[in-house]
């Protein structure tokens, strides 16, 4: 089976780092658009779920100038997601590992390999997406309102069918002015609003898109 040489090169680098540093529980690389480019094959973690969590933060991070690094220290281990060239490298390490040593190694080797590969191989393809739907906006208000948009359950089912039964968690919304944003999505739970071609969007997201209630926006699901 032929494999993307870019991904193969990166996976080899990650596997080498892991063999050098057994304290690494999992590591993978992904693009700003949310495509996993490479990961160590032994890892059993749900990388798509992790990506989804990271992207929910990434979309809200403009007040601090985007994300360069996200570090989480836990009682059993640490996770670090850091920018490496135009990608992100996620590394989960066990508590007893030498964190500084590991992160120095990954922080040096991965960007170097990335740079090298970029000069000789093309960049990976963007994520595939279904054709957009035109939906009318309704505002969801509240100071600590969630960050998920809501669409008809029927639409979610259609999208799920498009992606061979996989659950759709993220959508891309495009405003008439051309601005786009990504957000989590769930079904509208108010029966009175179902079947009307609506999309309920948190107020903050409406502001980001610079659209008002009753505007029509393009909405498309992103590959799970």
């Amino acid at each position: 089976m032929s494999r993307d040489p870019y991904a193969t090169g990166l996976e080899t680098a990650l596997a080498e780092i892991k063999s050098l540093c057994p304290g690494i529980k999992a590591s993978f690389l992904f693009t700003n658009e949310g495509t996993i480019v490479a990961g160590d094959s032994d890892a059993t973690v749900d990388t798509k779920r992790a990506l989804h969590s990271f992207q929910s933060v990434s979309e809200k991070a403009s007040p601090i100038g985007g994300i360069l690094k996200l570090s989480i220290a836990g009682s059993n281990g640490d996770l670090q997601i850091s920018q490496a060239n135009d990608m992100y490298l996620a590394t989960a390490i066990s508590k007893d590992a030498d964190e500084k040593y590991l992160l120095t190694i990954t922080g040096v080797i991965v960007p170097t390999v990335l740079k090298l590969l970029k000069t000789i191989i093309h960049t990976p393809a963007p994520p595939k997406a279904a054709p957009p739907q035109q939906l009318t906006t309704k505002k969801i208000t509240g100071f600590f309102a969630g960050d998920s948009a809501e669409v008809d359950r029927k639409i979610l089912t259609e999208w799920s069918d498009f992606f061979k039964g996989q659950t759709i968690n993220t959508i891309q919304i495009q405003a008439p002015n051309g601005k786009t944003t990504r957000c989590k999505v769930k079904a509208i739970d108010d029966e009175r609003l179902e079947g009307k071609g609506l999309i309920r969007i948190p107020e903050k997201t409406l502001k980001t898109l610079r659209v008002k209630e009753e505007d029509v926006v393009g909405v498309k699901p992103l590959a799970p």
């Binding site: 991070a61 360069l68 996200l70 220290a73």
Partner: peptide, 17 residues
């Protein structure tokens, strides 16, 4: 997802803050 246990602290770094 990564079985990190109880969270002790989180650091989110951007270009500006």
């Amino acid at each position: 997802t990564f079985e990190l246990g109880e969270i002790q602290n989180i650091l989110l770094e951007g270009k500006d803050a």
